[in-house]
Design a binder for these strands. Sequence first.
DNA 1: CATATATGAATTGTATGCAATATTAGAATT
DNA 2: AATTCTAATATTGCATACAATTCATATATG
Lengths: 227, 227
Amino acid sequence: MSQAFRLKQSIEDAVIAGEFLPGDRLDEASLAERFGVSRTPIREALLQLGAEGFIDVRPRRGAIVSVPSPTRLFEMFETMAEIESACGRLAARRLTPDNDAAMEAAHRACEIAAREGDSEQYYADNRNFHEAIYRASRNSFLADQAFALHKRLSAYRRIQLRARNRLLQSLQEHAGVLEAIRAGDEQLAATRLHDHVLVQGERFSDMVLGLSASGRATTAGTRSGTK
Amino acid sequence: MSQAFRLKQSIEDAVIAGEFLPGDRLDEASLAERFGVSRTPIREALLQLGAEGFIDVRPRRGAIVSVPSPTRLFEMFETMAEIESACGRLAARRLTPDNDAAMEAAHRACEIAAREGDSEQYYADNRNFHEAIYRASRNSFLADQAFALHKRLSAYRRIQLRARNRLLQSLQEHAGVLEAIRAGDEQLAATRLHDHVLVQGERFSDMVLGLSASGRATTAGTRSGTK
DNA sequence: CATATATGAATTGTATGCAATATTAGAATT
DNA sequence: AATTCTAATATTGCATACAATTCATATATG
């Protein structure tokens, strides 16, 4: 496969891993040197990431890691909540044994991680659980949208799972979601997933606001919207 | 602004206008000649459109206008239905006089176009109506997602509005949606919008299937999935 | 006649160079 | 000292050149 696609993945990974923080510049020359290629494929990768909303590419002014305002971030979580609840609704309607088993397995893994208080592991297993629900919607397009948004929010979700009791609460919410999907109760599945996702957004927004209010504001959150 | 961004818009417009049909190749050389630029900004525009899912960019094999399979198309409409109903639900919850007025104006315009049987005009006004609902959700991120998907589906929606009675039915459905939003009935608004959008998808899928069955199959719809 | 293979043409992928614009630092003026 | 203007510097945008791969055509082979 072409370099530009590999680079796109590498840069995205670096951003997700937190190597580049929101607000950091992604200048073409240094990325080109880092990966040992010319600016051309770097540019192409950056433009693609920009089109996906992952980073902010401002004409003639270079690319930076997006810095969503608290408002924007809340909007993103709210949208995630709506999309996830749609997945849950469809999953409840269309559940197959395969998808059921996949969700069950992911849930079990979450359970173990939560019991051990391993938030890093829970973060990974939680992702699998949610992805299992996306797939269970049996609408691959919707699932793709959900994946994409989940990735964009991962940086913010991770911070949020640090608290141990949040881990256990999250697990309980998962159980409730699973129950509703299995019962074929579309409405309940949708509501529970919606709340499960949105509570994260609310908590995170509060946290960001709290931070900037207490004076320990980072560059994130203090700037105006991304547009 | 840079050329690549203008070109991205131009190419997108050309696709939406139906100048390039699903399956058509978008080769860099001829586009470069057409717009009087080198291949570089064309490539950049195509890659961005590819990242947005608007076209299909296959490494080393060039770009083509996406050819969603009937299944994929149905999934896209179903996703659109879910996103629109989310917009409607939020709009019902948060409606402001400004947004109400905007929806009302767009609805009136649709009414005139429908009375005159001008499907081309209705197509444009219909778009405004739906966009007014997206904005009324007061979640700009969700609205952006809705805009983007609406654009991707526009080629398929247009064909569908040709039938005159469908115009009038669409208008009536709009009225019902508006009523529910104004009443603040989130559930009803969501359901009505969902059905309004999904019926288009179902009709279109039927049409595509009918076409390919009757032997008058175009390139669209007969190929396997986009991936 | 159908299939496989090889050769040439066309197309995409990357590197490099230069032009255009933005950013920064410094000098001049108030 | 602060502000505005100017010049130097750095960075992005685009064009061109070449390399790598795919696609098309024709030829050979069973």
